[in-house]
Write a protein that binds this DNA or RNA. Structure first.
Lengths: 339, 339
DNA sequence: ATTAGCACTCGCCGAGGGTGAGTGCCATCG
DNA sequence: CGATGGCACTCACCCTCGGCGAGTGCTAAT
C-alpha cells in the first residue's frame, strides 16, 4: 500500500470537499482526479485514512469529509501557496496606494482582503508599542489639563488628556516638549523607558512632578493592550456558505464582536512564525470557533511585525488561495507603510 | 362594526405575532386577549383589516401576519412607549458613567443598546460639524508639513497633516495658533466660515497663503461627510431569530457593512422629528433592508442633535420596548456628553 | 498489492393519506 | 345592524412507506 498515494487521496478529498461542500466517495474520486487505480483500492486507502483520524464519514452510507487533523496535514504538507497572477498583484498594489491616510489604508486593506478571500477579514492597526515615534505634542488645555498627542512614523495618532496637580506648570511646557522630542524621535515606545528616566533627571526638582506625569502617560499608552484597535469586513460572507444552518454562524459572529478574543488569537498565531500561519477548527481554543479556520500573517517588518492581518472562515475553505491573498495583502501593506 | 375594536384586533395581532413569530388566527386571538367577542366576529374584523392592507395571510389556511402598513399604524397610534424600570435606568446611567473617554462612551453605549434591545445597535460619533470646538493645535512636523489637531467640546479629536508650499512659515505659527483659538473657541465648525475669513484679513498679505491653507483644512473637515464615524454591535442577534432562513440575514449584513448606507438612513430619519423615529421594512429605500426596521433617535441636544443612535432588527420586533431603550440610551448619552 | 464482485446500510425523495387549524359564508339571534 | 354559531372547504403540516442509489466493507481472485 503506497504511502504516497494515500496522501494523494487525502489531498483529493480535501480539494473536492472544499469545492463541492459534499462528502466525497471513492467513485467520484477516481473520476475527477487521475489517481490511476480503481475505487476499491481507494476505499482501502480511505479506511486507513479514517483509522488514522484524517477523514470521517458523517453517515454510514455517505462519502468522507476531512477532519481538522486532515486539514492540518493538508496545509502543512500537501498544498502549495499558489501565487497570485500579475494583474491581481497589480490591482492590490494600486488600490492600496490610492489611500490618503492610515485609516484609509487599513480600511482599504480589510475590504480588499474580504473581497479577495470571500471570507471575513481582520486587520489590526499598527502596534503603538512597536512603532517608532515621530513626534510628541503637548497642548495646555486649561490651567490644570494637558493634552498629550503621540504621532508614530506609520501615521497613527493617539491622544490622552491628563489632569495636572500643580496648576502653575505652563511655563515649562515648551522646554518639556523640546526635550521630549529630542529623546523620543525615531525610537519605539517599547524602547523608551531608559531615555525617559534619564531625561526626567535633567529637570529641576520642582518640575519633575509634571514631567513624571507626562512620562507616565507615554508609558501607560505602552502598557494598554486594549489600545490595540482592529477593523473587520466581510461578515456577510459568513452567510454566503450556501445551505449552512444559521446555528453555526451565530457563535462566530459573537466571537467576532469580542475584540479581545480576536486580538488574543492573532497574537498567539504570530508567535508561530513570521510567514502565514493557519489555525484550524478546534486549534483555536474557543467554543464558538470550533468549525472556523483563521489564516493570518504579520506585516510591517520581517522579524517582529508591527501588527497582523487575517482571514477567517469555515474550516472547509480554500487554504491555498486564502493563504496567498493574506500573504500578498500583508506584503503590500508593509510596503505602503514603509514608504 | 366597531372601528375601535378593529384597531384592538390589529394591536393584538401585532403583539401576538411579535411574541410567537407565527401567523395568528381568530381562535387564539380571543383566547389570549380579552376581546369579549367570538372568533367569528374577529374573522369579520380581520377580513376588513386585510382589505385595508394592514394584515395578510401567508397561506390560504393560515392565520394573519401584519404588513408593513400594519406595523406603521401600530407604532403610530396603537403602542405606548413603555418606560424602563428604575433599576434599568439606574444600570444604564451607571454603566455609561464609568466610561473614561469618548471612545469608551460610544463603545459602551453601542454594546449596551445591543444588549437591551437584542438587536443590532448603531451609534454615530458626535458630529464634528455641529460640535463646538474647544481648541485647535498646530504642530510643525518638518520644514513643509504642519499637523492640525481639532478638539471638540465632546472630546473628539481629529487630526490632519497639510503640506505647505512655503517652507519659511514656521515663525508665524504661534501667532496663527493664538488667533485661531480666539476665533474658534466655543463655536461650532458649521458657524466658522465668517469668523475665519475675517481673521485671515487681519494677517500680513505675505502670510495669508499659509493662513488660508490652514483655514481650508478646517473647512474641509467640515465638508467631509465621510468623516462621520459609526460603530456597531450585536450583529450576532441577527442570527438569533430562530429558524430564520439565512437567505434573509445576508443582505442585511451587506447593508450594514456599507457605512454610507447606514449614515444616510440615520440622517434621513432624524429629519422627521426630534424624538424616536421608526422606519419599517420597505420604508427604508434599500433592497437588503426590506424586512428590517430601524428605530433611531438623536442625542446631544434637543433642537439639532449632535448625532444619532439606532437599533435595527426584523420588522417583527418589539417596537415599544426597542423605542424605550433607544430613547433611554440617547438621553443618558446626551447627559454624559453635556456633563 | 490491486481489483472485481457482492451483500448490506442508510440517507434521500416522492407519493399518499390523515389531521387540524383557519377561513369565508350564511342563516339566525338580540 | 352588528354579533354569533354552524358548516363546508382549503391547504399546510406530518407521518409513513417503498424505491432508489450512493457508498461502504468484505472476500476471493489476479
Amino acid at each position: 500500500m503506497s504511502e504516497d498515494r494515500r496522501l494523494d487521496v487525502l489531498r483529493a478529498i480535501v480539494e473536492d470537499y472544499v469545492l463541492t461542500h459534499e462528502p466525497v466517495g471513492s467513485r467520484v474520486l477516481v473520476e475527477r482526479h487521475s489517481l490511476g487505480v480503481s475505487p476499491a483500492t481507494i476505499r482501502n486507502d480511505m479506511a486507513a485514512l479514517e483509522e488514522a483520524g484524517y477523514i470521517a464519514q458523517p453517515h454510514t452510507s455517505a462519502g468522507r469529509i476531512p477532519t481538522d487533523k486532515g486539514y492540518r496535514l493538508f496545509v502543512d504538507r500537501l498544498s502549495a501557496v499558489k501565487p497570485l497572477s500579475a494583474p491581481e498583484r497589480k490591482a492590490i498594489s494600486v488600490f492600496l496606494e490610492e489611500a490618503v491616510d492610515l485609516d484609509d489604508v487599513v480600511d482599504r486593506a480589510v475590504r480588499l482582503l474580504a473581497q479577495l478571500t470571500q471570507q471575513v477579514a481582520v486587520v489590526q492597526y499598527p502596534s503603538l508599542r512597536r512603532s517608532a515615534l515621530r513626534h510628541i505634542e503637548l497642548v495646555p488645555m486649561s490651567e490644570d489639563r494637558l493634552l498629550v498627542v503621540l504621532i508614530t512614523e506609520t501615521g497613527r495618532v493617539e491622544q490622552r488628556i491628563i489632569e495636572l496637580e500643580s496648576s502653575s506648570s505652563e511655563p515649562i511646557v515648551p522646554e518639556l516638549r523640546a526635550r521630549l522630542n529630542v529623546h523620543v524621535a525615531g525610537r519605539r515606545l517599547i524602547d523608551l523607558s531608559a531615555p525617559l528616566a534619564e531625561m526626567t533627571e535633567a529637570f529641576a526638582p520642582e518640575d519633575r512632578s509634571l514631567v513624571r506625569q507626562v512620562v507616565k502617560v507615554v508609558e501607560d499608552t505602552l502598557a494598554e493592550a486594549t489600545e490595540e484597535r482592529l477593523v473587520m469586513a466581510g461578515t456577510a460572507n459568513l452567510a454566503r456558505t450556501g445551505t449552512d444552518f444559521p446555528g453555526t454562524i451565530r457563535p462566530v459572529l459573537e466571537a467576532l464582536e469580542e475584540n479581545v478574543v480576536l486580538l488574543r488569537l492573532l497574537t498567539e498565531m504570530a508567535a508561530d512564525s513570521a510567514g502565514v500561519t493557519v489555525r484550524i477548527g478546534h486549534e483555536n481554543q474557543h467554543a464558538g470557533l470550533a468549525e472556523t479556520s483563521i489564516v493570518a500573517a504579520g506585516y510591517g517588518a520581517d522579524g517582529e511585525p508591527l501588527a497582523r492581518i487575517g482571514a477567517l472562515g469555515p474550516t472547509r475553505m480554500d487554504y491555498a488561495g486564502t493563504m496567498a491573498s493574506v500573504r500578498a495583502v500583508a506584503r503590500y501593506l508593509s510596503r505602503i507603510l514603509a514608504g
